[in-house]
Design a protein around this nucleic acid. Structure first.
Lengths: 114, 114
DNA sequence: GTAACCAGTTACAAAGTAGTAAGTAGTTAC
DNA sequence: GTAACTACTTACTACTTTGTAACTGGTTAC
C-alpha cells in the first residue's frame, strides 16, 4: 500500500485540496484548457467558445490572474480589445489538464457503451 | 497550436467538463485519493482521516458508488461495520489524482518560496 | 446622433454546497 | 437497563456559486 502512486506522504489528500483550492469551480480548468491548447484569446472569444457568461468569466479570470495562471494584455485596437493568455506557470498544469481530458474521453466512451 | 496536448479535438474543454461532473465538489477526489492510495477504509475511518462530516461523507460516497468508482461492503462484525474500497474503474483516475497531488506539492513549494 | 462593437460591471434571484447538531437503529458489554 | 460503538439520516441554517438581464463607458462607422 501507499506506494502505488509515486508519493509516500501520509496526507497526500492535503495536496489534492491545495490543487482544488486553486482550480476550484466549474470553469477554471475549462478556461485554462482552452488557453493552454489554443493559445491567446480575447474576452469575447473566450466567453462565446466556453459558454461562460461575462460576469462569471470576468471573476474567474481575475482569480486565475491572482494565481499567476493567466496574464491579461490590453491592446489599443479601435474598439479596445483584451487578450488573455496562459502563463508559463499554467504550463505546469498541463499534466492535470491532459489527464482530465483523457479521462473524460474514456468515460464518455464507457457511458455510451452501457 | 492544438497539438501541445495529445488531443486534437475542437471541444477539448467538454471532456474536462465531463470529468468535473463526475468528480465535482470539494471532497470526491480527496476520498478517492485516500481509497486508491491506502486501500479499503471503514466509514468512521474515512470520516476521521479526511475531516468530512458524516452527512457529507455519506452523500459523496453514494454519488461515487453510482458512478462505480467506490464499492460498499457490509461486514457482519459485532457492531456492524461497512468497508469502502475504490473500484477497478477508479484506478483509471490514478493519472488525474497523481497529477493533482504532484501539482499540489509543487505549488505549495512555490508559495512557500515567495 | 444613432447604432454597433468591445470589455466588462451591477443588481438581483436561484440553486447548489457545506456544516452543525441531534436523532435513529442495531448490537454488545457491564 | 444504561452506556457505548457502529453507520448512518434528518432538520435546519448559512454560505457560496452560478446565472440572467440590464447597464456603463469608450470608440468607430454612417
Amino acid at each position: 500500500m501507499k506506494d502505488n502512486l509515486d508519493v509516500a506522504c501520509e496526507n497526500v489528500h492535503s495536496f489534492i485540496q491545495d490543487t482544488l483550492y486553486v482550480v476550484n469551480g466549474k470553469w477554471k480548468l475549462v478556461i485554462l484548457s482552452i488557453l493552454v491548447n489554443n493559445g491567446t484569446k480575447r474576452f469575447g472569444e473566450l466567453s462565446r467558445e466556453s459558454g461562460i457568461s461575462p460576469r462569471i468569466l470576468s471573476k474567474e479570470l481575475h482569480e486565475l490572474e491572482l494565481n499567476q495562471l493567466v496574464s491579461r494584455r490590453v491592446c489599443d485596437t479601435k474598439p479596445v480589445t483584451v487578450e488573455y493568455s496562459s502563463t508559463e506557470y499554467a504550463e505546469t498544469l498541463k499534466e492535470v489538464i491532459g489527464a482530465m481530458i483523457r479521462w473524460g474521453q474514456n468515460h464518455r466512451k464507457k457511458i455510451k457503451g452501457q
